[in-house]
């Protein structure tokens, strides 16, 4: 017996063509919104003098963390500036922040839905597994064909790759709220919205913040891949250095990414810790 090859690839391609032909306007809108947001953020970050930003971030680090973190922020950012990667780093930061914000805006509500309905959870969770394990290059291609080259498909790819922890941990955080507290909220006649905002979200906040922290880290790890489809920033510097075998440049740009990663990680983690303390 001869079973013919299932034409999965062909189906995907025709689906892609159909989407492009019929939902072009939607993609254009998304492209404009994301492109403008990243552009605006980029303009703000690059037009403010680098020293001002360094001071602000160092001060922020001191506020949420300890003086050690402030010191690291100051020295690390100064090094980036000194090496000449400031503007590119700010471009990267704009991309990462946009991707993280989109992930929060879509991820938290989706996580809430997952926590409330086992049906939604049953659908969403396998999709998340799919998104996290499918090699990023594979969905880079359709992203390019929908949104053309540039920063927008980079943001989209980052969101797809980075949103799962926010969804998962939001759902987990809400489901971990002790049963007797939920029962108490019900017993006093809370609506489900009141229960969500007065009990579940506040108690789930540390867990949700841990998810957002992961999301930011993951989207930062996507910047080199995003640069392959035309996103500007230090990711592009790394990519160029790799293709031209320039070890020194690659290392410098890589250091810039590492410094940003450590700063973003510690900053968000400390916000979580401060929240726990007051809760």
């Amino acid at each position: 017996m001869n079973i013919p090859k299932i034409p999965l690839g062909t189906w995907i391609e025709s689906l892609e063509r159909w989407l492009e032909a019929n939902l072009g306007a939607v993609f254009d809108l998304i492209k404009t919104v994301i492109g403008e947001s990243v552009g605006l953020l980029e303009t703000v970050l690059t037009s403010v003098p680098s020293f001002a930003i360094i001071v602000v971030i160092a001060a922020l680090s001191w506020l949420v963390g300890r003086w050690k973190l402030a010191l690291f922020a100051f020295a690390g950012l100064w090094l980036i500036d000194n090496l000449g990667y400031w503007d590119h780093s700010m471009q990267t930061l704009a991309l990462v922040i946009t991707a993280a914000l989109l992930s929060i805006v879509f991820g938290v509500p989706l996580g809430i839905l997952c926590a409330r309905s086992s049906v939604v959870r049953g659908v969403v969770m396998p999709v998340l597994d799919f998104m996290q394990t499918m090699p990023a290059f594979v969905y880079l291609l359709p992203a390019v064909s929908f949104f053309s080259l540039g920063v927008v498909p980079g943001v989209i790819a980052s969101v797809i790759f980075a949103i799962p922890p926010t969804i998962r941990l939001t759902s987990l955080g809400i489901r971990q709220v002790p049963e007797d507290l939920v029962e108490a909220a019900d017993a006093f006649g809370s609506t489900s919205t009141q229960k969500l905002f007065k009990l579940q979200l506040p108690l789930a906040l540390p867990t949700i913040m841990a998810g957002i922290n992961q999301t930011i880290m993951l989207s930062l790890s996507m910047v080199v891949i995003a640069s392959m489809i035309g996103a500007q920033g230090v990711g592009a510097d790394v990519y160029r250095a790799v293709t031209q075998a320039k070890i020194g440049v690659g290392f410098e740009a890589g250091i810039a990414i590492v410094i940003m990663a450590i700063l973003l990680d510690r900053l968000t983690q400390n916000i979580v810790r401060n929240n726990k303390k007051s809760g």
Binding site: P178, D180, L181, E183, A184, A185, K198, L199, L203, G279
Partner: peptide, 8 residues
């Protein structure tokens, strides 16, 4: 409630 169930 038995275990108080106060909102922490």
């Amino acid at each position: 409630f038995q275990k108080f169930a106060l909102f922490p």
